[in-house]
Structures are given as structure tokens and as C-alpha cells.
């Protein structure tokens, strides 16, 4: 029973990868500018995700503010707002540490865009939300825990 479930999940993941690869092929012109490579979105652990973003050694920073609820009743919609007070912020990435795909999104900011991003994410379970900020070629990070009552990733 469990083995079967594993196989189903595996094949689904395979199909997903192909679709992503196709999309990445179509997206080449814009992808060149994106901060995190598409592979970072396929990482299954926080460590791998940070590594493929080149943010393994990110320094903790108090200048990053993450605004998110302490307790999210519905994991399918968790509002998250990241403000970076670090001068010269060029990118902000949002990572939900215990999600199946930890890297949720990354945002490259150019031409006067401020160190601010507001969005809504899904969370599978209670976990840390980590913001990774790139400024002046260096990476900085900060995290905030959000407790999730009902997960929003599975069915």
C-alpha cells in the first residue's frame, strides 16, 4: 500500500519535472535575469534550496522584517510581507522550510524597486518562513515561525 503510494508520488514528481523543464525552455530569455535558478525550485530540502540559490552562507540580519501571522488557520493562504532595510537590496526570496518544495518564490528587484514584497503563500505545516535577501552581492537571511492549523499543500 505504502510502496504503491510512493511510486505514484514518484511518477508524479517526474512528470512535474518535465513540465517545469519545458516551461524553463520556453522561458529562457527571462530566466537569464532571475536570481534563483529553476533547479532551486526543485530542491526538496531547505539546505539544497539555499545551496542552489548560492545562499548557503547567508548571514542573519535584523534589518529584514517578515510580517506574517503567528498562527495561520488556513495553510492554503498565508499572507507574508518581507521588508528589507538593507541598502542596495536586489533580490528577495521566500522559503517555507517544511514545505515539500521549500523555495516558494524569488523576486529580483531592479530599476528603483524597493526592498519590499507582499504575497500569499501555501504552508503544509507549522514551520519557519525564511526570507533570503541579496544586497551588494551578499546574502542575508531572517526567519519567523508560523503555526499552521490546517495545512494547505496536500489534499
Amino acid at each position: 500500500m505504502n510502496a504503491l503510494r510512493r511510486n505514484v508520488l514518484k511518477s508524479a514528481a517526474g512528470a512535474g519535472t518535465v513540465a517545469v523543464a519545458v516551461a524553463a525552455g520556453l522561458l529562457k530569455p527571462t530566466m537569464a535575469l532571475a536570481g534563483a535558478p529553476r533547479t532551486a525550485f526543485e530542491a526538496k530540502t531547505v539546505g539544497d534550496a539555499l545551496k542552489s540559490m548560492g545562499a548557503s552562507g547567508a548571514a542573519d540580519s535584523k534589518d529584514i522584517t517578515i510580517k506574517a501571522p503567528d498562527i495561520a488557520e488556513n495553510g492554503a493562504v498565508v499572507p507574508v510581507e518581507v521588508t528589507s532595510g538593507i541598502a542596495g537590496t536586489t533580490a528577495i526570496a521566500i522559503v517555507a522550510e517544511k514545505n515539500a518544495t521549500p523555495l516558494v518564490a524569488d523576486f529580483d528587484l531592479t530599476n528603483g524597486a524597493q526592498g519590499f514584497i507582499s504575497t500569499r503563500i501555501k504552508m503544509g505545516q507549522t514551520s519557519l518562513i525564511r526570507a533570503v535577501v541579496t544586497a551588494g552581492g551578499k546574502t542575508y537571511t531572517s526567519a519567523k515561525e508560523v503555526k499552521v492549523t490546517i495545512g494547505g499543500c496536500g489534499g
Partner: peptide, 10 residues
């Protein structure tokens, strides 16, 4: 703005 997203966005 140039953003990359996963299915983790609501």
C-alpha cells in the same frame, strides 16, 4: 520585478 514562483504560492 522579475519573479520566479513555485506551486507554494497561494
Amino acid at each position: 520585478l522579475d519573479a520566479g514562483m513555485s506551486g507554494g504560492i497561494s
